[in-house]
């Protein structure tokens, strides 16, 4: 199903963290942080990974960038020479030329910038370590990048401590863009920002995508933000994907009970829409002790006997639409009405 347009195609990605106990550090169990996840991202497209803490969305994103070594699976990346490379199998040195084509925007605008380097050094570092241009050329490029993220060029010699959270996030974006990447992984890029600043960053990311034909893998827990940035959304629950669909379809007509509950739980900024919420019982399952069958069944109000024993698989129910639920064909679920 990959085409020329596909930038990234992930298949059967797994990341297990061993649980070690005792003096001899013996492995006594596995945390299945990511368990058999597959998806693709096209050029110029945003795919959002959503889910609650512990669902594996962040681990997935770090595996793709090889900040974490995946346990199994293939991560096919289409390079700028139009070659497909499996990132998962590369060594450190083989990986380095690919790094520049996949970059990351971080969640915490405070810890993601080295406080001891100037803005010029921070944004210029990817250029420097990849041997691109001399000092003057690099400074020119940094100035251009500051224009792109709408910060005054005069700020170049300042240190991060002089900037607000929103400005720092712009600096982080400029650094990610320095090497003209094709894919940007954005891990909760606006969740640490104030509401009035969030909107600026979201708009900036949308603009940059249109202008530079970037692909985003957008990791977020806030469904309102997700709706504003994504073309498609993948919902994760305890290491597995439960539903993938285009943004409008997923919000309007979810097909997985967890998606339904998630959508229902989002507070709507309108007091006239105080709808009856579906309040889920219990807590997100512990990924080191995943319930048998469908991991969501203990909290699912539609669960039947089959859900307790048999693990559902992600199956395609319509073009561009995958759901992992035994009862997908019988249930009619509620989305958000807009």
């Amino acid at each position: 199903m990959t085409t020329e347009q596909t930038v990234l195609s992930v298949e059967g990605l797994k990341k297990y963290f061993p649980i070690r106990r005792g003096l001899l550090r013996r492995v006594v169990g596995q945390v299945k942080a990511v368990d058999d996840v597959s998806f693709t991202i096209d050029r110029g497209e945003t795919l959002s990974l959503v889910g609650e803490s512990g669902c594996g969305k962040t681990t997935t994103s770090r595996c793709i960038l090889r900040a974490i070594q995946p346990t199994a699976g293939a991560i096919q990346f289409r390079t700028d020479q139009n070659r497909e490379v499996d990132v998962a199998g590369l060594t450190r040195t083989e990986l380095r030329p690919l790094r520049r084509q996949m970059q990351m925007i971080f969640q915490d605008p405070y810890s993601s910038l080295n406080p001891r380097m100037t803005i010029a050094d921070i944004i210029g570092e990817p250029l420097l370590v990849n041997g691109m241009g001399n000092l003057a050329a690099r400074r020119n490029r940094v100035a251009e990048l500051l224009d792109v993220v709408q910060l005054p060029r005069a700020y170049m010699n300042r240190f991060p401590h002089a900037f607000s959270g929103g400005q720092r996030q712009r600096i982080g974006i400029a650094r990610a863009l320095a090497l003209n990447p094709a894919l940007i992984v954005a891990d909760e890029p606006v969740s640490a920002l104030d509401v009035s600043v969030q909107a600026q960053i979201i708009n900036l990311m949308l603009e940059l995508q249109d202008r530079l034909r970037l692909s985003y893998l957008f990791v977020a827990h806030d469904l309102s933000v997700v709706k504003h940035v994504s073309h498609r959304v993948a919902v994760m629950y305890v290491g597995k994907m439960v539903e993938v669909a285009s943004t409008s379809t997923l919000f309007r007509a979810p097909r997985h009970p967890y998606t339904e509950a998630l959508l229902s739980a989002v507070p709507v900024p309108d007091p006239r829409q105080r709808a009856k919420r579906i309040v889920l019982e219990g807590e997100v399952a512990d990924p080191s002790r995943v319930p048998p069958g469908c991991a969501f069944h203990p909290r699912c109000r539609y669960a039947v006997e089959r859900c307790r024993v048999e693990t559902p698989t992600l199956e395609q129910i319509a073009p561009n639409r995958w759901v992992s639920c035994h009862r997908v064909r019988e249930l009619t679920l509620q989305g958000v009405v807009s």
């Binding site: 708009n203 469904l223 709706k227 073309h231 919000f251 989002v266 009405v337």
Partner: peptide, 13 residues
């Protein structure tokens, strides 16, 4: 300026 689940997908804020 608040993002909302009621908004159109990919609408500018």
């Amino acid at each position: 300026s608040i993002p909302s689940v009621l908004a159109e997908p990919r609408s500018r804020l």
